[in-house]
Computed example of a mutant assay.
Amino acid sequence: MKRICVIGGSRYFGRVLVQRLQATGHRVTVINRGSTRPPAGVEHLVADRDDEAALITALGSRSFDVVVDQVCYTPVQAAIAARAFNGRTRRYVMTSTIEVYDPASAALPAVPPGTPVPEETVDPATWLVRTDLTWHDAAYLQAHYAEGKRQAEAVFAQHYGFAFATLRSAHVLGGGAAEFTGRLQHYTERITRGAKITVHAEALPTVFVHYEELADLLEWAATRTDATGPVNACSDGLLDVHGLGAVIAAQTGRKAVYRRVAAGEPASPFSFDRHYAMSNARARELGFTFSHITDWLPGAVAEALAVTASATS
Rank of each mutant, 00 (worst) to 15 (best):
M1Q: 12
M1D: 11
I4R: 06
I4F: 08
C5I: 14
G8W: 06
R11F: 03
F13R: 02
R15S: 03
R15T: 00
Q19T: 07
Q19Y: 05
T24I: 04
H26D: 08
T29A: 05
V30Y: 02
R37G: 10
R37H: 10
R37I: 05
P38E: 04
P39D: 13
H44Q: 03
L45R: 01
L45K: 01
D48K: 01
R49D: 01
D51L: 01
A53I: 04
A53K: 09
L55F: 07
L55I: 05
R62N: 05
F64G: 08
D65R: 06
D69K: 08
V71C: 14
V71L: 13
V71D: 12
V76G: 11
Q77L: 05
A82W: 13
A84T: 14
A84N: 12
R90Q: 10
R91E: 01
M94Y: 02
T95P: 01
V100D: 03
V100N: 07
V100C: 04
Y101F: 02
A106S: 14
P109I: 06
P113R: 12
E120Y: 10
V122G: 00
T126G: 11
R130K: 12
L133V: 05
L133P: 09
T134L: 07
A139T: 15
A139S: 13
Q142H: 14
E147Q: 12
Q151P: 12
E153W: 07
A154F: 09
V155H: 07
F156H: 09
Q158D: 13
H159K: 01
F162Y: 14
A163S: 06
R168C: 11
V172D: 02
L173C: 08
G182N: 08
L184C: 07
T188F: 00
R190Y: 04
R193H: 01
I197M: 06
I197Y: 03
H200A: 08
A201R: 13
E202R: 14
A203F: 11
A203V: 09
V207K: 13
V209M: 08
E212Q: 15
L214N: 02
D216N: 09
L217K: 00
A233F: 03
S235E: 09
L239F: 06
D240N: 09
D240I: 11
H242Q: 02
L244S: 02
G245C: 03
I248E: 01
I248G: 00
A250C: 01
G253A: 00
A256L: 01
V257E: 10
V257F: 01
R260S: 04
R274P: 14
H275S: 15
Y276A: 13
A277S: 13
A281P: 15
R284Q: 13
E285C: 14
G287Y: 15
F290A: 12
A300Q: 10
L305E: 04
A309E: 14
A311G: 15
S313F: 12
